[in-house]
Each structure stands twice: as C-alpha cells, then as structure tokens.
Design a binder for these strands. Structure first.
Lengths: 187, 187
DNA sequence: ACCTGAACACCGTTCAAGT
DNA sequence: ACCTGAACACCGTTCAAGT
C-alpha cells in the first residue's frame, strides 16, 4: 500500500509511544513500514523535520484556551495540559525540546502563553520573557519526570513513591513563576 | 605516551570546545588520541560516564558561594556564574542537561542553590523545589541561547542583534522565580 | 511519481589476542 | 595492566536505476 507522509508520522509516533526516542531511527521506521530507508526521504526532508512534526502532534491536544477573565488560571490550566500532553508520549518532552531547538517558531503554545500573560497586564516584552521562562521550566520539569520514568523502566532506579507529588511540585513551579510575574503587572 | 583518564577527558573537552557535541564521538576521540576506539573503554566505562565527567568539569569554575547575609543576591550571582560557565563551552548546557538526566546526584550546583534558599527562609521542601525550578530554568534558557548560536554558526540564522539582551532576559527569569519564592518565606 | 538497491561515511561497544 | 584488531549491530542520507 502506498507510503504516505501520514503513515510515516503515525508509525513514528507508535514507535515513540512503545519504545521511546532511542529506538526511533529512520531505518527502524522504514523496517516497520516494510520499505527501504531511502523511500522515507521522498515524503520527509530528513529526521529533524519528522521530529518537528511529531512534536506538533504531541502538542495538538493542548489548546492554550483564552482567558475568560482569569488569565492566571488559564496559564495554570495550560501548563498542566502541556504537562499531560508531554507525559502521554514516551520521551515526549525530549522530542518537543528538540523540535523547539530545531524550529523555534513552529511550536504554538509559547505564543499562546505570551498572549495570556499580556492579557494579565504585562508589557509585550515581559509577557514574552515570562512565556519563555514558563516554557523552559515546563520542558525541564517534565523531562526530569520522564527521565526518572525511563530509568525506573530499565531497572536502574527503584520505582520510588509513585504518588503524584510530581504534579504538586510541577504546580509549585508554575505558581512561583506566576507570583513572580505579579510584580511587573501594570493593571 | 600512556593513555590516561585525564588525557581522555581533556581531549574530549577540546573537541567539545572546538567542534561541539555532535562531533564528540568515541571514535573521533580515539582518533585524536592516536589510539584504537576500544582502548578508551579500559579507562572509561562508556560514553555516558564520560559526559558526566565533562559536565563536572564544565561546572567546576562555579562555586555556589555562601550567602553572606544576602541569600537572594548569592542565588542571583550563582545563576549568572552558572550561565557563564555553560556558555564558555560549546553545547555546554546540552552536556550538563544530559549529565543531569544520567546522574541526577552527581551535579553539585543544585544542592548549593537549595542550601541558599533554605537560608533565605524557605522550608526544606520549598527550597528543594525552588532550586529545581531554577535549575530547569537556567538549563533551558542557556540551551536556547546556545542553540541560536549553533544555528547562527551554521548560517541557518541571521546573527541577530548581538547585544546582550540575553543577559537581561536571563536575569529577568531568575528574578521572577526569586520574587515568586518570596511568598513562601517564613522569615 | 514513487520506490529499490546499493553505497558512503559514520556510530558505541565488546573481546580475543597480543605485549 | 593496557592496548590492538577485528568484529557486531547499528546509524542518517544520497542517488542511480528501475517501475
């Protein structure tokens, strides 16, 4: 059956979900699709482009909803949605971090967060910086969670207290940043 | 001349400084040392261990000095020292992020920051969480700076306004986190 | 237009065998 | 104790040639 960009991305996402980023090679992907490695390059420029598309797919469920009178609340919810979306795919935060490094524009959530922060009374500049700070924090925090998960999976780490203090810690960081931004509010 | 762990690490750091993480392979390292790849594995367990040692070397110049009556100021200085140390080595933030993922304990600055924050009147838990938030922010922010530098180097990005707004933006993030932590202070 | 076959230039790691 | 030689099992990417 005809190879399509869609099928390539879908299969790549499957490999990611089931085996993680380390197993997502172009050759492995081709094998799973029953095709020669070179065939992929007709539909996809290179592996980097593929990773950017995967990152977009991972973030798709997240809509940085509009404020509705409570911009801080909207930021909190968006941050938690982002965390959930990243955690839903193995190595999700690594893929998104890579993609953001490769194609800084293409990932939407950043501009959404900036808009919310502007709405909360920050200048354009501070809103932009604040959104970037939040993004760095979110990606770093979730990356650490997922790294622990990978280590636990490979038996190199005792499973640890599986309770959701991670969620609490994550929210602490988000709230800390929001509280710190408070200071710069005009309104 | 006898191959030693020291020489391996030194040469690795040289490759990193001059050509970046992408060019730091065990085979390339062996070639530069005039030795067979397998020889490295007598002195070093594997590439991961080497990266952890490199991260320690990169962070060596940073001493998270004690407070001296002004813990917030000490945190600010430490953060800026960290940034400088990371920027001093090509792909420094990537190496340190990797190392922190591989050997979460081994990197010292985190516990230093936590100590400073405890001294500033935060509970152990909040100090710990605050230090982690700071670390995630710092690594993310500097990683972005360095990625831009790499892209510019390869000509995929116009050099941009080379002025040091990066430093300003970085400090904004650090100050925001510190201001946000203010709320939880006991003293 | 789309894919195969085959190559190019690499990887990290292991391990018998040499000195 | 320390290193070589050689292998194993991989990579990403390109490109003439086929259909």
């Amino acid at each position: 059956m005809a190879l399509t960009r869609q099928k390539i991305v879908d299969t790549a996402l499957e490999i990611l979900r089931s085996y993680g980023l380390a197993d997502l090679s172009m050759r492995r992907l081709a094998r799973d699709l029953g095709v020669q490695p070179g065939a992929l390059y007709w539909h996809v420029k290179n592996k980097q482009e593929l990773l950017v598309v995967l990152a977009e797919r991972i973030l798709e469920p997240v809509k940085v909803g509009d404020a509705g009178g409570d911009p801080d609340g909207a930021v909190r919810r968006s941050a938690q949605d982002l965390r959930a979306a990243l955690l839903a795919v193995r190595d999700g935060s690594d893929v998104v971090s890579l993609a953001q490094a490769l194609a800084p524009e293409s990932l939407t959530p950043l501009s959404g967060l900036a808009a919310l922060l502007t709405e909360s009374g920050l200048s354009e500049l501070h809103a932009h910086w604040g959104a970037k700070s939040l993004t760095h924090y979110i990606l770093g925090a979730v990356a650490e969670e997922q790294t622990r998960a990978e280590l636990a999976r490979s038996g190199l780490l005792e499973p640890g207290p599986d309770s959701d203090t991670d969620g609490e810690e994550f929210l602490f960081g988000v709230n800390t940043l929001l509280a710190g931004l408070e200071v710069h509010r005009t309104r």
